[in-house]
Design a protein around this nucleic acid. Structure first.
Ligand SMILES: [Mn+2]
Ligand SMILES: [Mn+2]
Ligand SMILES: [Zn+2]
Ligand SMILES: [Zn+2]
Lengths: 126, 126
DNA sequence: ATATTATCGCAACAAGGTCGCATTATGAAT
DNA sequence: ATTCATAATGCGACCTTGTTGCGATAATAT
């Protein structure tokens, strides 16, 4: 299962990188030049996640958002990013607030995945 | 639009209360005695939310979970609960960790809704 | 008891995401 | 350069979660 370099993967990664934010599937499809199938986009994104190049967040709208990983060592499927994400209710932007958050859990609880989203109005929209 | 007391509302609220956790639609349908239609359950739950009796969390599985509000003054549709929720990857339980969390946002950002979920293994499953 | 209308049940719908499968095209081997 | 194995794609079908329209039912007030 060695990865291949395809047009799709290159373009999708480029869109994610140049955006700098977390993007949903349809945001990616809009910002992309060529026509790439929905299923392909999801498959590419999930592959990126497996490879530790990208992480996924579920928004409070129930949609999946994908953002490039920074300082992400592990290549595991689940690389926990314990930072907050902010989703603007006006412009739709979803960004990673890179400041890490220490979350205290009760005794005996083991955290595997952090999915922290705050929605509201961003600095450009408030 | 005055609310009426129906079997459905009573039963659903009772299930939520006796459970003590945040429940998804299908969890409610399982734990309920009678047969209540899916659409009705959602409508009842959304009414509860509007009335400030219940709050909703989107899990990292993309599903909606509903939990009874404690210390919730406002009757607004959006009553922000800035506490963490924990979803157990083994037993499926979703609970409100009632300890409030102070989240620092960058200048100019206005928080409206908090959707904070950590998944992993609870004390009974770790 | 009657009237009003909030709520219900059912079916249809919509959105987001996944999967199976035949086809394409990447990267390695010759 | 050609051939080969198979990763990746496109398309359609499918699934799950949740919402909506509408006629039927039942909760409350008079
Ligand atoms: Mn992030
Ligand atoms: Mn809660
Ligand atoms: Zn904005
Ligand atoms: Zn558990």
């Amino acid at each position: 299962m060695k990865r291949r370099n395809t047009h799709s993967t290159a373009e999708i990664f480029e869109v994610l990188k140049s955006s700098g934010n977390a993007l949903s599937h349809d945001m990616i499809q809009e910002n992309i030049g060529s026509d790439i199938d929905r299923a392909t986009i999801y498959r590419v994104l999930n592959r990126f996640c497996e490879d530790g190049k990208v992480h996924k967040v579920i928004g409070d709208d129930g949609k999946q958002y994908f953002a490039i990983c920074h300082n992400c060592s592990g290549k595991n499927q689940v690389h926990s990013h314990n930072h907050i994400h902010f989703r603007c209710l006006h412009c739709g932007k979803v960004e990673c607030l890179e400041r890490d958050l220490a979350v205290p859990l009760p005794e005996g609880y083991v955290a595997k995945v952090h999915n922290l989203v705050i929605s509201g109005f961003c600095n450009s929209c408030s």
